[in-house]
Simulated assay, not measured.
Amino acid sequence: MLDGKVALITGSAQWLGRAYAETFAARGAAVAIADINEAGAGEVAAAIRAKGGKACAVAMDVSSEESVARGVAEACAALGEISVLVNNAGGLFAPVQSAETFTVEQWNRALAVNLTGSWLCSRAVIPQMKAARCGRIVNITSTTFDYGLPTEMVPYISAKGGIVGLTRALARELGPYDITVNAVAPGLIQPQDRAGRISLSAEKAKSITDMVVPHQCIKRPGVVGDLAGAVAFLASDDARFITGQVLNVDGGWALK
């Protein structure tokens, strides 16, 4: 499904990003594991290579213009020009709290990693995709944008909404070059180890589960495997005539 593709996946040293990377490698792509957690990225790349896949590890802070440029150059040197970009890096980066108590620093950090990082990484690979007249960009937004829920996550939800706008704007601009730009919007995903990222308390996680699952068509939280196939599909040539779309993978929570 992804034979011959070279994919750069940000935030892929753990959790969802790792699942995307392993799925891509299993389907034939060469994968650059890009993460601020350099040691973790190396472990994932080594695990993929041990299974016969092709992968390299790239240290990358997506909020840094210089780090992104350097990381993309290293990935290209190791694997070849990037044909698929998955902008997965992101997170809360602050405890859940009421809107008036977030600091400017917390707000800026959420936007820098979730939104600006997606733009910086896209900007870095667009020239080579244009030259090839082919490319796939898959952004990771969130179903929370549809409802503004759960509450007390204003910077995160705002950034994820910005990713929807980025997806649509880039799709319009890059379509003439046969570059597709889409987004996947995960719903409630069963919490796992976030490798040092700020996580929800058990009480808060349960309250969110109790709030969301009854409104889904499929009455369970999602798991990482529910998302990987959707991301891989949008990265493949099977999705070559799909662009500017947001695919909700949420058990039918944000049913439209």
Rank of each mutant, 00 (worst) to 15 (best):
S118E: 00
F145M: 06
L170K: 05
C134R: 06
I189M: 10
L200N: 12
A124S: 09
C121D: 02
G175C: 12
A110T: 08
L188W: 13
Q128P: 08
T209Y: 12
R194K: 09
G148N: 15
M211D: 13
D146W: 07
S199F: 06
V184S: 02
I208L: 11
G148T: 15
Y156W: 09
G187K: 05
I179S: 01
T167S: 07
M211Y: 15
S142K: 03
V181N: 01
T144K: 01
A202W: 05
V138Q: 02
S142G: 11
L170W: 04
A185L: 08
N182F: 00
V154A: 15
P127S: 08
A183N: 09
I140F: 00
C134I: 00
K160I: 02
R123V: 01
F145R: 06
D178Q: 14
T141K: 01
G196R: 10
R172I: 10
T143A: 15
F145I: 12
W119G: 01
V181M: 03
I218N: 09
K204Q: 13
L115G: 01
S158I: 01
D210I: 13
W119C: 04
R136F: 00
I126P: 02
T141C: 09
N114Q: 03
A205F: 11
A132V: 08
G117Y: 03
G117A: 02
Q190C: 12
V138A: 00
S158D: 05
A131E: 10
T151D: 14
S158F: 03
K130P: 07
V125Y: 03
I126N: 03
L149E: 15
G162A: 06
P186G: 12
R168S: 11
M211K: 14
G165R: 01
V213H: 10
G161P: 08
S122M: 04
I157H: 10
Q216T: 13
C121M: 06
